[in-house]
Amino acid sequence: MAERKSGGLWETVKTLVYAVLIALGVRTLAYEPFNIPSGSMKPTLLVGDYLFVSKFAYGYSRYSLPFGLPLFEGRILGSLPERGDVAVFKLPADNQTDYIKRVIGLPGDRIQVRGGVLHINDQPVELAALGGFDDDMEGRRFKAPLFEETLPEGRTHLVLDLQSNGAFDNTKVYTVPAGHLFVMGDNRDNSLDSRADHVGFVPLDNLIGRAEIIFFSVNGQASLLEPWTWPWGIRFDRLLTLIH
């Protein structure tokens, strides 16, 4: 009887170990879940969105590993992001904090914002006004000016322009160095991104992956770990939404 109990316990332990190893393998090599804590990527991503990030999209660096273990340098199977990708990366200032922004500038590009209009290699991108986006700031509801932005390659996405003459609406020219990216939030007047010294250019080695799909979303009245709150707080229209 004692041997049977011991064998059963050992089988349970092995099953748990295998499950953890499989989960770590998937998280390291395939997809990792992230959640959105701020409004810097509105209207594309909202606070309370949970999304899967493809770890293999750009290859692997030390930051693909748990705890950023420095087991190797550079990127393995690395590939350059496409302009317009929504990417997760480690903040260069500390190499620990996870940030998510849109890739705007590739190595060698010249990036500038003039009068609130993004310029890439001295050419203004196309902006089309789409009306307003229901936004809130410190509990105050308002309509934020909403635009569709078209990048040089033809990819489109939505952006907000909260102020006509905000701090980042007129910038210097940023020339993206080799091995780096220039990233921006879609909430253009409420995003700490490559326009800010705190972020700056993002080394390719700091990339974690490409945001792919929203698998869960709550509006503040529900929690992922409290299913009994879901009926009142899930944003059902955002579930399984592809990110672009």
Rank of each mutant, 00 (worst) to 15 (best):
A178Y: 06
I214M: 04
M184N: 07
L162Y: 00
D197R: 13
A167C: 01
Q163M: 11
G166M: 07
V202D: 07
R210T: 01
D189P: 01
V202S: 02
L192C: 08
E212G: 01
F201L: 01
G209F: 15
T175P: 01
S194G: 14
Q163P: 03
S194D: 12
L204M: 13
G220I: 09
V176D: 05
G209A: 14
G179N: 09
V176R: 03
Q163D: 13
S217P: 12
G200R: 02
D197Y: 11
S164E: 15
L162V: 04
L204Q: 10
A211G: 13
I213E: 04
V176Q: 03
F201Y: 12
S164T: 12
S194H: 06
D186F: 03
V176E: 03
I214E: 06
S191R: 06
F215C: 08
D197A: 14
A178I: 02
S191C: 11
G209E: 12
V202A: 04
V183W: 00
H198W: 05
S191L: 13
R188W: 02
N190Q: 14
L192F: 12
G209I: 13
Y174A: 11
Q163L: 13
N170S: 11
H198N: 07
P177W: 03
H180S: 12
A211S: 11
S164I: 07
S164W: 03
T171C: 04
L204T: 07
N170K: 02
